[in-house]
Write a protein that binds this DNA or RNA. Structure first.
Lengths: 238, 238
DNA sequence: TAGATAGAGTACGACTAGTACTCAATTGGA
DNA sequence: TCCAATTGAGTACTAGTCGTACTCTATCTA
């Protein structure tokens, strides 16, 4: 985006007719501009709130800067002074309300996995999920966004997941070989797939199925040894 | 709709005043309209080809009906007579070039899984992947599309996957309990996640990791009930 | 061969993206 | 305390797309 800067041609006085409009409605004092104005964080928050509301109501595809501005009772200029485009605005709006993943530690692997997968599912419901859907399409135009999205959405569940698995490994119920980022992505990935394919909300039964049919069978320690498999060349068997 | 107005600079001269041009270059007969016209399938194919080319070149976000029409040397009217919107056009264009999943049957589970996951990865490269990305954003406005996308993209890999697993189960290397649609989605889901997060092409090493770290450990049969079996159904064969 | 169908080209109204400019209200520094 | 700089609100403008409609004509069909 934003390449041909096209340095302004010789512009002359363009605004001609605004005098008449402002002149006739208020003879003396308070026109529409006389209200106290929001600034800084207050205005920022109002814009974020409007953005998220638009996401929720209309979805990313129908979210326009004009409508966000109108809803926030701000001007387009104020939006463009802060964000170069819709994409960045939405990213920041989402980030401003980012739900933290809290690593559960109940001592019960299955319960912890259910909790964590539930958090992943919850994070996709509401405006955040809409944004994820919508921003996917922008990625082609904006490779930088791909990195952001990856960090914010895909990778954010990995450390908590690995921590849960690590604690399970310490207790001996998780096989250590499963402590890899890829394995940690399996559960969250299935949740996200399901969201993409079926939308929100994500049924708790589905979350339970993911845990019981996939994640647990994949990571659980087996009686005689570590990995359930001796694949090609790997397996330095202790 | 209103995915409008990209700051796109590739201006296509649509509204040229062609009267002058046609008026002076041809006094009597053949104007610009005199060329033979394509119809039916021939025109359809040209439009599909133009759509896929636009997808590949510019991505879904920058794909406009005007550009597709120009590229196909067709008129917007011809496009709108066939498809009510960009969404349907792209869906049909993708469908017209749908790669069939071929169920591999080498007798070697790991090899078959690698082949099948490779097919899933391949299907996301090129215009099809672009379309999947782009259509995700339309889903909110068009719930019908969600069902289509699910069938075309998500579910299409499940039957071949189940078939590969079923054959493995017959050979005794796959535990029968893993023959569920959810388990069958794990591998393809990870591939799609990776595509969404990293784009195309998808490294063969990643595909191998999915198979070796996730799919095989998940489905492989264990000695007694749940205990791991000694070997996978792969590497032992010459 | 005449009528029906459909493609090409064009025009148009409605809408949004961004930019730019005016004017007023805060803010912050001297 | 006062004034200059900053910034929000409102507006206008250009460029570009959407979707529809209308004309003209090539091709198909009865």
């Amino acid at each position: 985006m934003r390449e041909t800067a096209r340095p302004a041609r010789p512009k002359l006085a363009v605004m001609a007719s605004s005098d008449a409009a402002t002149g006739d409605d208020a003879p003396g004092a308070d026109t529409y501009r006389n209200k106290p104005r929001r600034r800084g964080d207050e205005l920022n928050d109002a814009i974020y709130a409007a953005t998220l509301a638009e996401l929720t109501e209309s979805g990313y595809a129908d979210l326009t800067m004009e409508r966000v501005a109108a809803r926030a009772k701000a001007s387009k200029g104020s939006l463009y002074r802060r964000w170069p485009s819709r994409t960045e605005l939405v990213v920041d709006a989402i980030r401003s309300r980012q739900p933290e993943h809290v690593v559960p530690d109940s001592g019960d692997l299955r319960a912890d996995l259910l909790t964590l997968m539930g958090q992943v599912a919850a994070s996709l419901e509401g405006p955040r999920g809409e944004a994820v859907r919508g921003l996917a399409v922008e990625v082609t135009r904006n490779p930088e966004l791909l990195r952001t999205l990856r960090a914010e959405v895909m990778d954010s569940a990995v450390p908590p997941m690995l921590e849960v698995l690590r604690r399970g490994a310490v207790r001996g119920v998780v096989r250590p070989a499963s402590l890899t980022p890829l394995v940690a992505q399996v559960g969250p990935g299935l949740i996200r797939q399901h969201f993409m394919a079926y939308g929100a909300p994500i049924a708790t039964q589905f979350i339970a199925d993911v845990v019981d049919q996939v994640v647990l069978p994949l990571v659980i320690a087996h009686v005689d040894g570590d990995a359930p498999i001796a694949k090609a060349g790997s397996a330095a068997r202790p």
